[in-house]
Amino acid sequence: MRYYETLYIVNPNFEDKRVETIISEVGVELQKTNSKTINHHVWGKKRLAYPIQKQKYGTFILMQYAGGETGSMAEFDTWLKLNTSVLRHLTTRLEVEPPKIDAPVFEKTEEKATEKPTLETEETVETKEAPEEAPESSEDESIDDDVQEVVAEEKETSEETVETEEAPEEVTESDDTEKETE
């Protein structure tokens, strides 16, 4: 059994209901390939690295499934391509069976959950690389501010102040490390 993962981007201006209908439409279309859906949920609203169809942001939806018939899988791919509400999609093959996530995690909580463990491991293993991470996380938060206007403001402001205090020191450190590598 082969496992696949499809990540697709939906117009960020769509309201939740419309996104849900798109998700169900894609799910129905996937069923035609006799695939078993394992996960299918919104990964989060993110800023795109470059504009796609004049959109600066995108709602990312992640879908993991056990592959069905290869012929109809190609049809599914073209269907996604022709679907106008899907800005872009990418299907990759997974080497191992993906774990099932029951409760879909939304952008805010998910990103922090993924950030923390990586930071911890990196800090413990190597202290030199860690400073590079900190400014990036502050960038990520600023992006989140743009996307989600209604968030718990108190938390973010407190975190940002902490990071801005740390940032200047760390930036200089990272510059040094970069020079060394060069």
Partner: peptide
């Protein structure tokens, strides 16, 4: 390269 295709990373920044 996959990340670039899906718009998570820039081709050129």
């Amino acid at each position: 390269k996959q990340s670039r295709m899906i718009g998570l990373m820039p081709f050129s920044d």
